[in-house]
Design a binder for these strands. Structure first.
Lengths: 195, 195
DNA sequence: GTAGGGAATGAACGGCGTTCATTATCCGTG
DNA sequence: CACGGATAATGAACGCCGTTCATTCCCTAC
């Protein structure tokens, strides 16, 4: 095995272990020394692969984004939903299901520091853009006369709304709101938009 | 001045200084040593007043919550909005305005760790509850036949939606979405709900 | 076999929140 | 006023963190 291969191997190993830790105990539980011990390498080796720990989290997030997009797409393909509203509901429910199934990984997606948008990797905005473009389809069907920018604005509004409902819903799931309630809230908003 | 008074004074001083730091550079910029130097006391004294730094942030958040609620209430009182929909829009715009004016203080409200809901102070949930009860009024007017629980669920959905739009909108304000766009998204959602 | 260079190493650094033995201060009592 | 016990203030020290870098190791090309 060549040097390059081993390096790529270590990269994959680190990402896998990091994802496991994040999924189980959250981003803040990810420690360089612990990770190095788990991976069977030194702390320094981590920094030969990633510039810093944050970059590693972002690498995990990249894969999480792909998974999430796939989950939403799969849900649409698998469903028999026909009307734009039904399709939007299906997507939103898939989003909720993913967040509920992998709360810590999902949370890590939006835990990135936001001091400067410029230091967000470009693929990050592109990944979100891709997610939005999936939702564009039913929104566009719902408002066939609108130009693409206007459709995208409504898509953004809809996605942000669902995101907010899921976010606040999941965070205080003990207090009052159960998963059924979150579902009801999602349907209320989406159905309101879909006439 | 009695011991108790000075202690209360120190408490207020620390909260004020902490708010200044958080408002200017964010929660993560709040350091015990720096704060002690600014307040003219030792690091240990901070821990005589607050159990830990997190508790201090929560104290700041408590006042921020009051401010925010007041801002929303003031907006309603000042406006000539009559229809439920107009009143909801007024509230949502006030929420956006507050978040835009004090982004770091507003963000700190939702940066609390969420491992256990039980360790969230009860006044925290009550403060959010109070905010929701303000919004209940127009929602109840809009759906006069609904029982209080159902109204509250729709209120929650609406608030969460606006929150999500403001959250994602403010975070990437450089990239694409301007404040006007955020306003448009808010109106789109609220007006959809308001028929 | 060997020289060169990139990769691996882990001790060390600086910064953090938090603790706690020590010191200073207050206040009710004799 | 004097004194003693409780209470508050202090900041050095502790443990943990991410990150660095002088050193060592090992692979590869000649």
């Amino acid at each position: 095995m060549s040097t390059t291969d081993r390096r790529a191997n270590l990269r994959d190993t680190l990402i896998d272990l990091a994802r496991e830790t994040i999924a189980g105990e959250g981003t803040s539980a990810l420690k360089a020394r612990t990770l190095a011990a788990e991976a069977g390498c030194s702390v320094g080796s981590i920094y030969n692969v990633f510039g810093d720990m944050h970059e590693l989290v972002m690498a995990v997030n990249g894969e999480t984004f792909r998974d999430l997009g796939q989950a939403v797409t799969d849900a649409i393909v698998a469903s028999a939903a026909t009307t734009p509203t039904d399709r939007m509901i299906t997507m939103a429910e898939a989003y909720l299901a993913y967040a509920a199934a992998h709360p810590q990984l999902w949370r890590a997606l939006f835990d990135v520091p936001i001091t400067e948008t410029s230091n967000l990797p470009s693929w990050y905005l592109e990944a979100l853009d891709e997610l939005l473009s999936i939702i564009d389809a039913p929104v566009s069907d719902l408002f066939p006369d609108l130009p693409p920018d206007a459709v995208r604005l409504r898509t953004r509004a809809l996605f942000s709304s669902i995101h907010g409902i899921v976010l606040l819903g999941i965070e205080e799931r003990i207090s009052s709101v159960g998963k059924d309630n979150i579902s009801d809230m999602i349907r209320f908003i989406v159905e309101s938009v879909g006439k």
